[in-house]
């Protein structure tokens, strides 16, 4: 397959997937166009710093005391 043909196919795919000017991934109700896939890969770094909880507990009784 010629390179230009490949590009045309991919261009058609992108336009099918993205029909509007709104930000893709915005809002709670977004769905994909029929027949399209979306691959999403992410790295997440999460942390629980109990020092925050300790300080809060000392300052305000009744604060977070749930165990890890």
């Amino acid at each position: 397959m010629k390179r230009s043909t490949l590009l045309n196919v991919f261009a058609a795919l992108v336009l099918v997937v993205l029909p509007t000017s709104t930000a893709m991934g915005a809002g709670f109700t977004e769905t994909l166009k029929a027949g399209t896939f979306l691959i999403d890969a992410s790295y997440v770094k999460a942390w629980i710093n109990s020092r925050w909880e300790r300080e809060r507990r000392q300052g305000r009784p009744g604060g977070p005391d749930r165990a890890l």
């Binding site: 896939f37 992410s42 942390w47 809060r56 604060g63 977070p64 749930r66």
Partner: peptide
């Protein structure tokens, strides 16, 4: 602040790629 909860923070970075086969 919340109450009786594990106070977690997180940073995430990612990418999205639309495809049609």
């Amino acid at each position: 602040p919340g109450k009786n909860t594990r106070a977690a923070d997180a940073i995430s970075v990612g990418l999205r790629l639309p495809l049609k086969f």
